[in-house]
Structure formats: structure tokens, C-alpha cells
Design a protein around this nucleic acid. Structure first.
Length: 213
DNA sequence: GCCAACGTTGGC
DNA sequence: GCCAACGTTGGC
């Protein structure tokens, strides 16, 4: 599923949810692309360097993946074959880099329902397959198709995740903000739209605690 | 439904 | 390479 897709849900039929959809691709010149090597990618900035550093350091990492429940919910994941899905549809370079470079098998994932009323953490999942090309970028007519992506050098990546368990109660932003341990969470930062976010162990544990039934 | 924040596009 | 226009994200 697409997880990344966007809000327009209409289109995204995909499974995923991420809401990122759109994609038009970016393309052109970019300039910066640093990490990957490929020439041309816009550098997305968004995430603070500290987020990258955070993700790269620890052995077990913790993540927060956003998905619009109308597009693909945690319950959809629980009902999926093998309780698994490919997290397709991510069309943002920084999020892509996390999926490609930093997510490892065994990493734990907080499944966040964005564009929900209210937005909330819904459950826990784990990464079961590391970064690999997102097949939807090559599907003609698919909402997440990216005609500019070269099959010999795919632009967009996904990981597979598997549902572990739903939270006993939804974890809201309000509940997170009320605890000082949420300090620094990208999720709570104004204007932060990144759909794949690293969490510190402390932030992750706070989410679990707040979600305990 | 609004709209601020932000990323991308593309003319120049 | 700048930057205005445009499209998207996602909380509120």
C-alpha cells in the first residue's frame, strides 16, 4: 500500500497510505542529491539533519509511518495477507532516503493515522523487508506511477511492514504534547509533513505507554 | 473546509 | 540559479 499517499484520497487506491501521492516527479536538475548519488534530486530538506543522525546511530530503530486511514488503515494492515504490506507511494526524497538507507528488518513502526479525527497512533508494526523499489512507480496509470523513474535505477523505494498489534487506545497529539518526553518529536513540529519519521527510543516508549490499554 | 507550511516546477 | 506560481500535506 501506498502508504504514502495523499490526501486526495480519491486517487489513491493504492494501498498504502502514505499519503504522499502525488508525485509528479521531480526531477530535473537537482542539485543536491547527496547521499544517493544520483545526480539530480531535489534535496528535500525537511528533515533536520538531526533526524538523519538519529536514524543512523542506533541499533534498533523506531519509526513513525503516516497513513490516511481512509486510504489504508492499521486495520487494513491487520487484514492484509500475512498482515503485511509494501509501504508504497512515498514520493518525497527525504522519506525515500529513510526507507532506502535507514529502515532495517526488525525496526519498530508506530502506525500513525493522519487526516483522521483526531489524528492518532493506531498500532504497532515492524519492518520485515528492507528498502527495495516501490513497484507502483512503474505501473501505467497507477496513481503512484512515475514515468520519469528509470527501471534500471528506480527512484522510489518501499519497505514491507507487518502488523504487530493495535494500541489499546489511540495515541493523540494532545496526549503526546502533554508529556515532556515528546519534546523534539517531528510529528508535533509545526509544518512538519514528513511521512516517514525516526523516533528516539524515549519517544517510541512514550507512544507505547500512552497507547496502553 | 480552511489555510499555513512547504516542496516542486519552470520561466527567465 | 532565482523566484513566483502552483500543488500538496495535514492539523485544526
Amino acid at each position: 500500500m501506498a502508504k504514502g499517499s495523499s490526501s486526495n484520497s480519491k486517487h489513491s487506491k493504492a494501498r498504502g497510505t502514505v499519503k504522499s501521492k502525488a508525485s509528479k516527479e521531480a526531477s530535473k536538475q537537482g542539485s543536491s542529491a547527496k547521499r544517493s548519488g544520483k545526480p539530480s534530486e531535489p534535496a528535500s530538506q525537511g528533515a533536520p539533519a538531526s533526524a538523519n543522525a538519529l536514524a543512523r546511530g542506533a541499533e534498533v530503530r523506531h519509526w513513525l509511518f503516516k497513513s490516511e486511514p481512509d486510504v489504508f488503515s492499521f486495520q487494513d494492515l491487520q487484514k492484509a495477507a500475512g498482515r503485511r504490506t509494501g509501504w508504497d507511494g512515498v514520493r518525497n526524497y527525504q522519506a525515500r532516503n529513510f526507507l532506502r538507507d535507514d529502515c532495517r528488518v526488525g525496526d519498530l513502526v508506530v502506525f500513525w493515522h493522519s487526516n483522521a479525527e483526531p489524528p492518532h497512533g493506531a498500532g504497532l508494526a515492524k519492518v520485515v523487508r528492507p528498502g527495495h523499489p516501490d513497484p507502483t512507480q512503474f505501473v501505467k496509470g497507477h496513481d503512484h506511477e512515475d514515468p520519469a523513474s528509470d527501471p534500471a535505477d528506480p527512484r522510489w523505494m518501499q519497505v514491507e511492514i507487518e502488523a504487530l498489534r493495535a494500541f489499546g487506545k489511540p495515541v493523540t497529539m494532545e496526549a503526546l504534547r502533554a508529556d515532556p518526553r515528546s519534546s523534539g518529536m517531528l510529528l508535533l513540529a509545526k509544518g512538519q509533513r514528513l511521512s516517514i519519521q525516526p523516533l528516539t527510543r524515549e519517544q517510541y516508549e512514550l507512544v507505547l505507554e500512552l497507547g496502553a490499554g
